[in-house]
Nucleic acid binder design. Structure first.
Length: 667
DNA sequence: GCAAGGTC
């Protein structure tokens, strides 16, 4: 009889097959590639992650007609998403008496395997089942895992399924509640979720901080000191009192004395190996994290880089770093490879996070510029340069620090000069800024060429960029390496945010306010941490999955009971409306808003309709952005439009219309 | 048309 091995993805299936058997043949059925060893009569099938999806039964599909409360304890169904794989599994299941689950060795992996097993058991309920647990796909690890198989951990799979159920129920109930109450239905629905809502809250609260920020003035004194060469130094104090600043400024004469001087060499550490978070942070200098992840996926599938979803920042000892660096000697990165290989020995930098499942992201093949698209090359080059930089020598700086006494007023300056660029010659994405200061001796008298009293003011905190948002999400435990970029994309596509750095829309403000006063749990990272704890307890057998789901559902039930639907609807509609207002009606002074005809065509209309019937046309293609800039002539906000080809300015829609009309009249 | 998590 036969043997069926199930892995989480196709690539792993191929590699495990080639490690375990030496007569592997690749077969294809129902559009699915898999592997067969005739001598062992074994099949290896790679899944595509989750091949089934949890959902409500069809009778719950109508958002309008299904009472929200009925979603709380609905019997959820599992729908097969990968029909071809399911068919193949069932067919092979008939031919085997043993199944080995060899999905990734983590919580989701356990569930993914369990889902496949349920399909197998539909046709072969008595099949023998075991589980191979490996944390690296090396011959040694794989052989060890398959010679000492263990059991499928049902509790662990149940823990993952509990997460699915809670996410779906909370997500569906609150998404429907917010969408229905705001009137944003259909394509424009507003979503709520355990990960996306806390992320959106961060963005909204930052924006509020910026709005409420009151700058306070402060004063700085800078002066130029000369000894042949001139340099700038800053008074050590940051003055909040003008009188004190002026007094200090007055005291400064025409000369000053060097109080301390120090010259040192300082090593600058190399960047650490790329995990997904750091990769996306750097890549977001060039494109959106979502795009970067898709490009990385393509590079991975075509064999140019290693698996792009990893938390690991420490290269495993099995990786031959020197050989990889050597492979770049005859490439576009020859110069960079030589810097690495010129060292007597190669020691890689190490990050703080270590996990054993995948290595950090590194190049697995040498590519030529011509064989990749522009975006692919950008990402590939980033990965190659980062990899080589982690193996390169440290950068060496000469750092000078000086303290200057100007009639009792203390000044400080720091000079920096790059003595040896080391990794900086390879990793060109951050600039090395040099500041020149001459060599000085203690007691030396300097001439003061120039002095300035500068009035400045404190600045509000900056808005989040996609890059630092991904890092903060990781720190707060929101999402995973595979989902964070998708969550951010979701915030854009729901029109909760726009631009990078991200700005929230008025709708986002209203949704977060509404959730905070009615269901604050869903806007806090704590919900994720609580869920993590509960999942651990389920995995350890200390809690039952039903108990955890019931507790969560009861809480949500209580939230639903306490909601003032009228008030919720009012505040949400106000927020949503603000995003549609473009200015004042030139005919009656009421608000002009973006509206839609019954045929879903958009236009600008007066909110006083039918009393006032002023309208302006809008282009039908692309996403509209109402900018903050107003037309001086008409007091109507200028509009930008984003299409697949990029952004274009419509400008003031009234001016635009009048120009168009003038042209028509001429013709 | 809902979430978040895998993977393509």
């Amino acid at each position: 009889m036969g043997w069926l091995i199930i892995t989480e993805k196709h690539n792993t299936a191929r590699r495990i097959a080639s490690i375990l058997f030496n007569d592997v043949k690749q077969l294809k059925k129902y559009g699915v590639s898999y592997y067969h060893s005739p001598s062992s009569n074994a099949y290896v099938v790679g899944l595509k992650g989750h091949i089934v999806e949890l959902d409500f039964p069809k009778e719950y599909n109508s958002w309008k007609n299904v009472p929200l409360r009925s979603l709380l304890r609905a019997e959820l169904v599992k729908e097969v998403k990968e029909k071809g794989i399911a068919r193949l599994l069932k067919e092979l299941a008939r031919e085997v008496d043993r199944v080995t689950v060899a999905t990734d060795y983590d919580r989701e992996g356990e569930l993914i395997g369990f889902e496949a097993l349920e399909i197998v058991k539909q046709v072969n309920p008595d099949v023998k089942v075991d589980r191979a647990k490996y944390s690296a796909i090396t011959p040694a690890d794989i052989k060890k895992a398959f010679s000492n198989p263990s059991k499928v951990d049902i509790n662990l799979a149940k823990a993952a399924e509990t997460r699915q159920r809670i996410d779906l129920i909370w997500g569906a109930v609150l998404t429907r509640l917010i969408s229905i109450s705001s009137g944003r239905m259909g394509r424009d629905f507003l979503s709520v979720g355990r990960v996306q809502s806390p992320t959106l809250r961060l963005i909204v609260e930052r924006e509020k901080e910026i709005e409420n920020f009151r700058p306070t003035p402060y004063w700085e004194i800078v002066a130029e000191f000369c000894n042949g060469e001139c340099f700038t130094a800053k008074h050590v104090e940051r003055f909040t009192d003008v009188a004190k600043a002026k007094a200090a400024f007055k005291k400064i004469g025409n000369t000053a004395a060097v109080r301390t001087f120090e010259k040192k060499e300082r090593k600058e550490a190399r960047p650490t190996p790329f995990n997904t978070t750091e990769f996306l942070r750097e890549a977001s200098k060039f494109m959106s994290p979502d795009r970067a992840m898709n490009v990385a996926e393509t590079l991975y599938m075509n064999g140019y880089i290693s698996y792009p979803r990893t938390d690991n920042t420490i290269y495993p000892p099995t990786l031959n770093l020197k050989a990889i660096a050597t492979s770049f000697l005859n490439s576009d990165f020859e110069k960079e490879a030589k810097i690495v290989l010129s060292q007597p020995s190669i020691k890689p930098s190490r990050g703080k996070k270590e996990s054993k499942d995948h290595p950090p992201i590194y190049p697995t093949a040498v590519a030529k510029k011509g064989e990749l698209s522009k975006e692919e090359w950008t990402i590939y080059e980033l990965v190659v340069r980062r990899f080589l930089a982690t193996l390169a020598p440290e950068a060496i700086w000469e750092v000078k620090r000086v303290e200057i006494d100007a009639n009792g007023e203390l000044f400080r300056a720091t000079g920096r000069r790059l003595l040896s660029p080391g990794w900086r010659a390879i990793y060109i994405y951050s600039k090395a800024e040099e500041v020149s200061i001459p060599d000085l001796t203690v007691g030396q008298i300097l001439r003061i060429k120039n002095k300035e009293l500068l009035e400045k003011e404190t600045k509000p905190p900056g808005r989040y960029t996609t890059g630092n948002l991904i890092r903060i999400m990781e720190k707060l435990g929101l999402g995973t390496k595979s989902t964070r970029h998708e969550i951010i994309k979701k915030l854009y596509s729901r029109k909760y945010v726009y631009g990078n750095p991200l700005r929230p829309t008025q709708t986002a403000f209203a949704v977060i306010e509404a959730l905070k006063s009615n269901a604050e749990t869903i806007t806090l990272p704590d919900m994720t941490s609580k869920l993590e704890k509960d999942m651990d307890a389920i995995a350890e057998g200390k809690l039952s999955d039903e108990e955890v789901v019931e507790e969560s559902v009861r809480f949500l039930d209580e939230i639903l009971s306490n909601i003032d639907v009228k008030e919720l609807s009012k505040s949400l509609r106000e927020g949503v409306k603000k995003d549609k207002v473009v200015g004042k009606c030139p005919e009656c002074g009421r608000e002009l808003v973006i509206r839609k005809t019954k045929g879903k065509k958009r236009f600008i209309g007066c909110s006083g309709y039918p009393a006032c019937s002023f309208t302006l046309p809008l282009p039908q293609n692309g996403t509209l952005y109402i900018t903050a800039k107003e037309c001086e002539k008409h007091s109507i906000k200028k509009i930008k439009i984003r299409t697949k080809k990029g952004y274009w300015d419509l400008g003031c829609p009234y001016c635009n219309y009048l120009e168009w009309k003038a042209k028509q009249d001429k013709a």
